[in-house]
Amino acid sequence: MLQAFFIILQRDLILAVRHRAELMNPVLFFVLVVVLFPLGIGAEATILERIAPGIIWVAALLAALLSLDRIFRTDMEDGSLEQMLISAQPMSLLILAKIIAHWLITGLPVVIAGPLLALFLGLSVEGIETLFITLLLGTPILSAIGSVGVALTVGLRRGGVILSLLVLPLYVPVLIFASQAVDAAAAGFQPAAAIGMLSALLLLSLSLTPWAASAALKMSVS
């Protein structure tokens, strides 16, 4: 059982590395969205510092949303998803592996790029530290919740818009807690409460969403 988990994880990572150009797309998108904000709002340092956590987190949400489709779409198209569903392994475990793989491929680059961009936006050192922690805790939640949304829409031809309608409202708590934590840290307060909530959300989403996603996949594939 655990072996199947690691096989899926390894397979998804290998597949991602073989498509190196695609690997860069989400993080490039993330950087671009963040760069657009100073251009649109103006480069006033105080404003930028104030809105930096929100901008970076919204951009992270959008980057995650953009890349969600790949969790199941290609597997659906080449039929390997069906093989996973009819295999003797518990589907929720395989989905957990796919969520983690998706996070390693698309979330981790954002976790690394986020603090760098925050530096460009003039966030304080405390803020940047907290931003890193929230990104580390928060981006896996995005992949986990997103897996349910993708599982529900993977059978549709034009699932993209619907996917964003399904997933973005569910992302709101992550956005709120994460940007609150960074705001608090940047203002010199303890961000521990919001970070604790984020950790709770992470555990909750990692333990519940594979289950919901597997039910949704069984529906989508049948």
Binding site: R158, G159, V161, I162, L165, L166, P169
Partner: peptide, 14 residues
């Protein structure tokens, strides 16, 4: 409201 609209959109898409 967005959650409701998501439900409706998903239903009409399948």
């Amino acid at each position: 409201l967005f959650l409701y609209l998501g439900v409706l959109a998903l239903y009409s898409a399948i």
